[in-house]
Design a protein around this nucleic acid. Structure first.
Ligand SMILES: [Mn+2]
Ligand SMILES: [Mn+2]
Ligand SMILES: [Zn+2]
Ligand SMILES: [Zn+2]
Lengths: 135, 135
DNA sequence: TTTCTATCTAACAACAGTTGTAAATTAGGG
DNA sequence: CCCTAATTTACAACTGTTGTTAGATAGAAA
């Protein structure tokens, strides 16, 4: 799959790919880096970024910018949406299709739309649970 | 309005507020800064950021993080959605309500959702127009 | 109107996330 | 097993944003 693009198969690339596909929680580049480091202490953060971008541009993963401070990387490239915790930044998949969300030409303002993302923001169970609620 | 919150009415605050309300294009902090500078060359970018955050926390404006490299500030606090140009970062309002976009409890993953944003990504008219298309 | 002081601004440094650069390393074809 | 183009690493630099603090000022009080 790297090979298909004329890219060499290096241990660094294999690791980034594997870590990402094991990971359901939309890791940041740093999170990927930290996880790989356990087994390959010499890997550099720069290489992780490089490889994540390579994977993204070959369509194997998606980069998400959700205002959580750093980019998230998602191995799931099928169209889906996300829940984002305002408190801790957790990102959780939403598997539901909202086919009604299409813009009529009159509201397009001349844009050519290539993707539609729905972001549900709020508090994740952990963060909501830790709120002491007067009862 | 600043006064309501126990904040002093300074020329800097007045300028930020006014610039934002004149501006329909979701300016960045720097864009606000540059515009104010024309009339008040001594203002600092730090003060612009400070005031934007103050305005946001008093609910007068909204901060949007759309992956365009820097935060955008929106004087329109009514619920609405956005078109975002992947090429130039332009942000345009979408005025249409998508009432169908509610998550059933079964898909909430335990989150308490406080807002729902829909982002339509693509190319704005200017960027699409400048594509030389072989015809 | 002047005084006083808590608030605010500006200057500046620092920070986080990310990207540029180039020397050293290495995958993998020959 | 070599060779070399591709890759990785180290390190610096960059962008957007935030922390800090000395000096300036809004506006209440006198
Ligand atoms: Mn996802
Ligand atoms: Mn808007
Ligand atoms: Zn959370
Ligand atoms: Zn554009």
């Amino acid at each position: 799959m790297f090979r298909d693009q004329g890219l060499k198969i290096t241990p660094q690339r294999v690791s980034v790919f594997r870590v990402l596909h094991d990971n359901a929680d939309h890791p940041t580049a740093e999170a990927v880096f930290d996880q790989i480091r356990d087994e390959m202490p010499s890997i550099s953060l720069r290489t992780v970024y490089q490889t994540l971008h390579d994977l993204a541009s070959m369509g194997e993963i998606r980069q998400l910018d959700l205002g959580t401070g750093s980019a998230r990387f998602d191995p799931n490239v099928k169209s889906h949406h996300h829940l984002v915790c305002d408190k801790c930044g957790r990102v959780t998949d939403v598997h539901a299709s909202f086919d009604g969300v299409r813009l009529p030409r009159t509201k397009l303002a001349g844009y050519r739309v290539s993707s539609t993302e729905i972001v549900f923001r709020g508090e994740c169970p952990d963060c909501a649970g830790s709120n002491a609620v007067a009862s």
